[in-house]
Amino acid sequence: MTITQPPGVDTPASEPRKPAPPTFRQRLGRLDVKLSPYLYIAPFWIVFALVGLFPIIYTAVIAFQDWDLVRNTGEFTGWDNFAFVLQDREFWFSLRNTFSIFLLSSVPQVIVATVIAAMLDKNIRSKTFWRMGVLLPYVVAPVAVALIFSNMFGDRYGLVNSVLGDFGIDPIAWHVDIIPSHIAIATMVNFRWTGYNALILLAAMQAIPRDLYEAAAIDGAGTWRRFFSVTLPQIRPTMIFVIITSTIGGLQIFDEPRMYDTNGQGGSNHQWETITLYLYKTGWGEFNFGRAAAVAWLLFIIIVAIGLLNFAVTQRLIATDTMAKKSKNLKKVTK
């Protein structure tokens, strides 16, 4: 017997089943997925805040004061410290020397490091030995490097002048003239950091797929063509990293000019005095920590400005390269 629903009466729809509330372990798992990445990077940011961010802010506070180190207090002076530093000729001499040494060291350093990395990327014997060899100068203490090279570039009995004398070249006053002193200090910097940067670039070169080299060789590209068309474009991000780190290190150079002579004052006429040496003399030589903090912030602003300039230039180059590739592919399609 079948029971039918009277006409005009709706059949009640089945109610949707409510999902069960999440358990405690499920809620804990969701919380772990959301918070665990921040917990993993939290130690770095905590340490950075203590030893990096706090000193930067504290230095900015001292830069606007006439700071007394003994009483650990200061009197607010406004922009007087910055005005004095910017009007001081010694500051501009040190800025000139810093940029000169930076250009003489960073530019050849990156070029030579790229060449060494390309040579180590070849199929040569004893690869580990040669890689360790180029890294050995980086292990040597900066003070030892400065002492050795300062004697090599001695004005009277230096090894370099002795070699130049064998070729009939007059001795060079490495500790008196401006440009020779900058070349000598830049040589120390290049000696220490070229191998380090070469290994970084070598790691980037080894990550390049070998299929690209094989395809280029099949198309008839020679060694130099493969280097400029395959290697350099593929290691461009690493090259940008090396350039930025070399820029920061070059503008903060201290050990080499400090140990270049026995006085450590940057020369009798400020021939090789850098900004960091000027900062050191202002702070610990004159005990004027307000002005020293102002110099530190001016150096910080200069480094940030040059870093942003490097980033803008590299982004422009990447955009130009991308547009060139798109136009080249479009021409192939239209053909």
Rank of each mutant, 00 (worst) to 15 (best):
I62A: 06
I62R: 07
I62N: 03
A63K: 15
A63F: 11
F64E: 11
F64V: 06
F64I: 08
F64N: 08
D66V: 01
W67S: 05
W67F: 12
W67T: 12
D68Q: 12
D68Y: 10
D68I: 15
L69R: 09
L69V: 08
V70Q: 07
R71L: 11
R71Q: 06
N72V: 13
N72L: 15
T73I: 07
G74Q: 12
E75D: 03
G78E: 11
G78I: 08
W79F: 11
W79I: 12
W79M: 11
W79R: 09
D80A: 06
N81M: 00
F82C: 07
A83M: 11
A83Y: 12
F84N: 05
F84W: 03
F84A: 05
F84E: 04
V85R: 05
Q87H: 08
Q87W: 01
Q87M: 06
D88H: 13
D88W: 06
R89A: 13
E90S: 11
E90C: 05
E90L: 10
F91K: 00
F91W: 12
W92A: 01
F93D: 15
F93E: 15
S94C: 04
S94M: 11
L95N: 05
R96T: 02
R96M: 14
R96V: 04
R96G: 12
N97R: 01
N97D: 00
N97P: 00
T98P: 07
T98F: 06
T98L: 01
F99I: 14
F99V: 14
I101H: 07
I101C: 02
I101F: 14
F102P: 01
F102S: 10
L103D: 00
L103K: 00
L103F: 15
L104K: 05
L104T: 13
S105M: 04
S106H: 09
S106Y: 11
V107G: 08
V107N: 05
V107D: 00
P108W: 11
P108K: 06
Q109A: 01
V110N: 08
V110A: 09
I111Q: 02
V112A: 13
A113R: 06
A113G: 01
A113D: 01
A113W: 05
T114H: 00
V115I: 13
V115L: 13
V115A: 14
A117Y: 12
A117V: 10
A117N: 12
A118L: 10
A118F: 12
A118R: 09
M119G: 04
M119L: 15
M119Q: 04
D121N: 15
D121Y: 10
K122D: 13
K122V: 07
K122F: 06
N123V: 03
N123Q: 06
N123Y: 04
I124K: 04
I124Y: 08
R125V: 15
R125D: 08
S126W: 14
S126Y: 14
S126E: 04
S126Q: 04
S126R: 09
K127F: 03
K127M: 09
F129W: 02
W130H: 10
W130Q: 04
R131M: 08
R131T: 10
R131A: 03
R131C: 07
R131D: 04
R131I: 09
M132D: 00
M132Q: 03
G133S: 13
V134R: 00
V134I: 15
L135T: 05
L136M: 10
P137C: 11
P137T: 15
P137A: 13
P137V: 12
Y138D: 02
V139K: 00
V139G: 01
V139W: 06
V139L: 03
